[in-house]
């Protein structure tokens, strides 16, 4: 059996004195797309931040393995270079940092960490142009400071564009559908599906089934009160949509 891209074992995490993740178990084999669905406040974003290495959380128990190696001791930047990409639920606006400068710094930092040479400026420009065209990110947006003045939809498209440029082994998409109208949802889904190449794994977090009509998952997990309480195929998402999360409320200890 090949090593899964992601394996989470009995993960417990807290912020300040509050336990948010209460024993998450999850295995994502190479090339698979898994969805996590759950109520607001159940801890989905927390899981995504913990994967990306945000400092605010204390891991009290458990293990996260990326391609079989623990990442718990790794800095966020190291995790990114190792192949984790988080598309944020709320991408941050950073005035004063030019989008192109940021993209180039990110690509080259990851290449450097992997022992690869810097991308030449023409190659970089070509890559940005290609990814931008696919996700309707035009040059006017690229000229602005990072995410500044972007609409909700523009921010989400820009996130997926970054993912296309950074080519992660594991992409975690946190509510990438929130704030998108149906046209934008299609653009974003198309961009995501173009990156499904049979090798890249994805964890798609959402609380609407709608997104999963466009990005069809291999496995659906139900998340409730800090853990996965049920897993199934894509039909599980449809059942959830019909019945809601009420059935799972009792299950969470």
């Amino acid at each position: 059996m090949t090593t899964p891209v992601l394996e989470i074992r009995n993960l417990h995490a807290r912020i300040e004195d509050r336990e948010i993740l209460k024993g998450v178990n999850l295995v994502i084999p190479q090339g698979e797309v898994h969805a996590i669905m759950g109520r607001n406040g159940s801890g989905k974003s927390t899981l995504s931040y913990v994967l990306a290495g945000k400092e605010d959380y204390e891991i009290t128990e458990g293990e996260i393995l990326l391609n079989g190696e623990s990442i718990l001791e790794m800095e966020p930047a190291e995790r990114a270079a190792a192949g984790i990409f988080l598309a944020f639920q709320y991408p941050i606006e950073i005035p004063g940092v030019a989008t192109m400068t940021f993209l180039k710094a990110a690509i080259n930092a990851q290449r450097k960490a992997r022992g690869e040479g810097e991308l030449s400026t023409p190659d970089f420009m070509r890559a940005v142009k290609e990814a931008g065209a696919q996700l309707n990110v035009d040059s006017a947006m690229l000229k602005r400071p990072l995410n500044v003045g972007f609409s909700g939809g523009e921010k989400k498209r820009a996130e997926i564009m970054q993912m296309a440029l950074l080519k992660p082994a594991l992409a975690v998409l946190d509510e990438t559908d929130s704030g998108l109208d149906i046209d934008a949802l299609q653009v974003v889904s198309k961009g995501v599906n173009a990156l499904r190449d049979g090798k890249r794994s994805m964890l798609v977090i959402t609380h609407y089934q709608r997104l999963l009509n466009h990005i069809v998952p291999d496995v659906v997990h139900v998340f409730s009160d800090g853990r996965i309480v049920e897993s199934g195929d894509k039909d599980l998402a449809l059942q959830l949509e019909a019945k809601g999360y009420a059935d799972y409320d009792g299950q969470a200890a």
Partner: peptide, 22 residues
């Protein structure tokens, strides 16, 4: 902001420099 830059693989010192420059 710092975490956003780090999460894209930009090392801490470089990310801080970018924010200060900003």
């Amino acid at each position: 902001s710092l975490f956003y830059l780090l999460s894209r693989g930009i090392p801490k010192a470089e990310a801080e420099t970018m924010l200060v420059r900003g």
